[in-house]
């Protein structure tokens, strides 16, 4: 069965997947796979962007979100008109001719992947470009995957991606729907800063930085680099830490560092004399 594989460490946020999907499905009728979506407003694959941190330690993460073509799809379960089907290849399709416009599937979907087309009175979502896969030998992957310039998006037989899957996560694991979209490198929190000597006006290089979770005692270490920068990455959400900075016997402690968001601690002065 097919699945999607998304590596966020190489998603550059170009939005081309979002656009390629519109190029295929706006003003093009692929009944019985899908009717045209409206020109704007639906995102069968859509990018969510997160600006993380504060000046000058800021990153942007991009997350493509789409129908998860779930094995335990709540939309199929809810549909009272047999309009939604899971194919042998794993793709879930809403038949636009059978859909009666009751909106139950759109309301039910825990991944917000189903959109309602008011004009046509039907629910619509990603089809995995099944119309292309079935009808055109040139197409072995959907539009979004076909164009992805960095290969962040991949599509293929689950069996061929065992290596990817073993390190992968689901976007909404709590939904429990047996998703067929596997993610790697979902963004996790960072804490960073720059250590400097306010007397000499120099960065402090080679300082030992220790970040300790005040509740469970987990400890992470980093060393300030040639810009005096330290980074702690891939931290869990909503943890509270104490940071200790150590150089040549001098120490500084910063308490109550909370990862409810990504944090830049700014330029931190530490006198060395």
């Amino acid at each position: 069965m097919k699945a999607f594989f998304i590596d966020l460490s190489i998603c550059n946020g170009c939005y081309c997947c979002q656009i390629a999907c519109k190029d295929e499905h706006v003003a093009n009728d692929w009944t019985p796979y899908a009717k045209p979506q409206p020109d704007t407003g639906q995102f069968w694959i859509g990018i969510t962007e997160q600006v993380r941190g504060q000046v000058p330690k800021v990153k942007v993460s991009y997350i493509p979100k789409m129908c998860q073509h779930c094995d335990d799809a709540p939309c199929i379960e809810q549909c009272e008109f047999d309009a939604i089907e899971k194919r042998e290849d794993g793709l879930v399709i809403i038949n636009p001719d059978k859909c009666t416009g009751c909106k139950l599937c759109a309301d039910t979907c825990p991944h917000d992947a189903i959109f309602f087309n008011e004009n046509l009175n039907i629910a619509q979502k990603c089809t995995g470009c099944a119309h292309l896969l079935d009808n055109d030998a040139e197409w072995t992957v959907p539009r979004c995957v076909d164009q992805c310039p960095t290969e962040a998006l991949k599509f293929g037989e689950e069996a061929d991606f065992a290596d990817f899957i073993k390190d992968a996560e689901f976007l909404n694991p709590e939904a429990g729907t047996k998703s067929r979209v596997f993610y790697k490198n979902l963004p996790k929190k960072f804490v960073g800063g720059t250590l400097y000597d306010p007397v000499e006006k120099e960065v402090i290089i080679g300082a030992t930085c220790t970040l300790k979770d005040t509740e469970n005692g987990d400890t992470f270490t980093a060393t300030t680099d040639n810009f005096g920068d330290f980074w702690f990455r891939k931290l869990d959400d909503d943890r509270t830490f104490t940071l200790t900075l150590d150089k040549g016997g001098k120490q500084k402690t910063i308490e109550n560092i909370v990862t409810d968001k990504d944090l830049s601690l700014g330029d931190i002065p530490m006198g060395l004399v």
Binding site: T194, Y196, D197, K201, E202, V203, N226, F227, G228, D267
Partner: peptide, 25 residues
């Protein structure tokens, strides 16, 4: 100096010095 430049360009003195050294190293 980096102190003179920092006022004009908004980059902290210590970062200017670090950049100068990284660039030459």
């Amino acid at each position: 100096t980096p102190a003179w430049a920092s006022k004009k360009c908004g980059v902290p003195e210590w970062t200017i010095k670090a950049l100068a050294r990284e660039f030459s190293d």
